[in-house]
């Protein structure tokens, strides 16, 4: 009896040992399988499942940190409220005058646009979002705290503001109910049709994986103006026209990649690494949907 028990125990431990021998191999094969698989449906579904395990706690911690940040700030704000109130009242009256002038200018602009039969520029509508996580190894993707619930869809353009300058940040590559993943413009796989404001030529602005960008496929005759502004082009399928991407970098670094095209370094207008808040552009139909749901 005792011998049998001992025998069974030994058998069990032998089985456990063999499982342990297989386990690292099993995980390695599984990981390799995941790497080699193209990022298509099965992987995306798996990621969607993982997002329910990996993201909620980060969202909660981020919210808690923000709340605690807000407490200390609001004390200071309350202390300065009266002074700020006077200043704001003054500013409001100034803005009222400016607004009245703007209305006149807008009407004039519309009238002139109609006269020139130009297509009316689409207003940028969207949602402000906060970065809740930065991918640390490549620093080229971020997770924001807004998702489909806020009208964000796949491939929504993302812009940001740095020192009063509005510029391109990236685009949405994955979206869930409450969060979205943004690939930043500095990623080597990020490319967008760009328009050089002074040279009036189109090229392809791409990330260079070192936090910067470059414009390629420019004709060799393109005048290389340093600090020339580069905007999103009207021919871009995803991005609305006229978003500032950046400016042409130092002319010393200009390089000719092939016999046929010129490549210029591009300094992004907004450094995606420094921004904490982003503005995700949403098409007007989505914005209406979100507003209606909010009213309900």
């Amino acid at each position: 009896m005792l011998k049998d028990k001992h025998h069974n125990k030994k058998k069990k431990s032998d089985g456990y040992d063999s499982v342990l021998r297989i386990l690292p191999l099993l995980f390695s094969v599984l990981s390799l399988f995941l790497i080699i698989l193209p990022l298509q449906k099965p992987i995306n579904s798996f990621r969607a499942v993982l997002s329910y395990i990996f993201v909620p706690q980060l969202r909660a911690v981020h919210a808690a940190v923000q709340y605690l940040d807000g407490v200390s700030e609001s004390v200071g704000v309350l202390l300065n409220a009266a002074v700020e109130n006077y200043a704001l009242k003054d500013e409001i009256s100034k803005l009222k005058i400016q607004n009245a002038q703007n209305e006149v200018l807008q009407l004039e602009n519309e009238r002139l646009n109609n006269a020139l039969k130009m297509s009316q520029q689409i207003k940028w509508q969207g949602a402000w979002a906060r970065i809740i996580y930065r991918e640390p190894s490549r620093l080229n993707t971020v997770i924001i705290d807004k998702g489909t619930d806020h009208g964000i869809v796949l491939r929504s353009p993302v812009i940001g503001v740095e020192e009063g300058v509005v510029g391109l940040i990236g685009k949405v590559i994955e979206v869930s109910l409450k969060t979205s993943k943004i690939v930043l413009s500095s990623d080597e796989e990020f490319c967008i049709t760009a328009f050089l404001a002074e040279s009036r030529v189109e090229g392809l602005a791409c990330g260079n994986d070192r936090g910067g960008m470059f414009v390629k496929y420019l004709s060799l005759e393109t005048p290389a103006n340093e600090k020339e502004k580069v905007y999103t082009s009207v021919s871009s399928a995803i991005f609305p026209e006229g978003i500032l991407i950046g400016e042409i970098g130092s002319s010393e670094r200009i390089s000719v990649t092939t016999d046929a095209f010129l490549t210029l370094p591009l300094k992004p207008a907004v450094n995606p690494m420094r921004t904490k808040e982003l503005f995700v552009l949403i098409s007007s139909s989505n914005t209406d949907k979100v507003l209606n749901e909010g009213k309900k």
Binding site: P24, F27, S28, R47, L50, K181, E189
Partner: peptide
């Protein structure tokens, strides 16, 4: 978990950690 936030090479960290 680390791979989840990356946009390429999903499974890379999982493999490295196992090794």
């Amino acid at each position: 978990f680390l791979d989840f936030f990356n946009n390429v090479m999903f499974g890379g960290y999982a493999l490295v950690f196992t090794i």
